[in-house]
Amino acid sequence: MTSKKPADCETKEDVRVEIDRIDQALIALFAERHRYVTRMAQIKTDPHEAYDPVRIEAVIGRVRSRAEGLDLDEDQAELIWRTLIDWNVNYEKGIIVARRRAE
Rank of each mutant, 00 (worst) to 15 (best):
N88Q: 12
D8P: 00
D71Y: 11
A77S: 06
L72M: 14
G69P: 05
L84R: 02
T83Q: 02
D52K: 00
P53I: 02
V97R: 07
V89C: 04
H34L: 14
N90F: 08
M40V: 10
Q76Y: 15
R21W: 03
T38W: 06
A77I: 04
L29I: 08
D73A: 01
E32A: 15
R39Q: 15
Q24P: 05
E103I: 11
Q76P: 09
I56G: 11
T38S: 07
D71C: 06
I96D: 03
V63M: 04
I95P: 06
K93M: 03
D46K: 08
Y91N: 04
R64P: 03
A28K: 15
D8A: 01
A102T: 12
Y51P: 01
A67M: 06
R64L: 05
D71K: 10
V15H: 11
R100Y: 01
R82G: 07
R64F: 02
C9I: 00
L79E: 13
R66D: 14
Q42D: 13
H48C: 07
R55P: 08
V89G: 00
D73L: 01
D71G: 06
A67N: 01
E78A: 10
E32S: 13
D73K: 07
T83I: 12
V59W: 06
E10T: 15
R55C: 12
T11K: 03
E92Q: 14
M40N: 08
K5W: 09
L72W: 06
I27L: 15
R62G: 13
V54S: 08
D46V: 03
P47C: 01
V37N: 01
A102E: 13
D71A: 08
F30R: 14
W81I: 13
R16Q: 08
K4A: 06
D52G: 01
R101W: 08
D8M: 04
R66P: 07
D23S: 13
D52E: 00
R21F: 02
P6V: 07
A58T: 12
I80F: 09
E57T: 03
D23N: 15
E57K: 04
D75L: 11
V63E: 03
Y91T: 04
D52Y: 04
R35H: 04
M1L: 10
G94Y: 02
R64A: 09
I80E: 04
N90H: 12
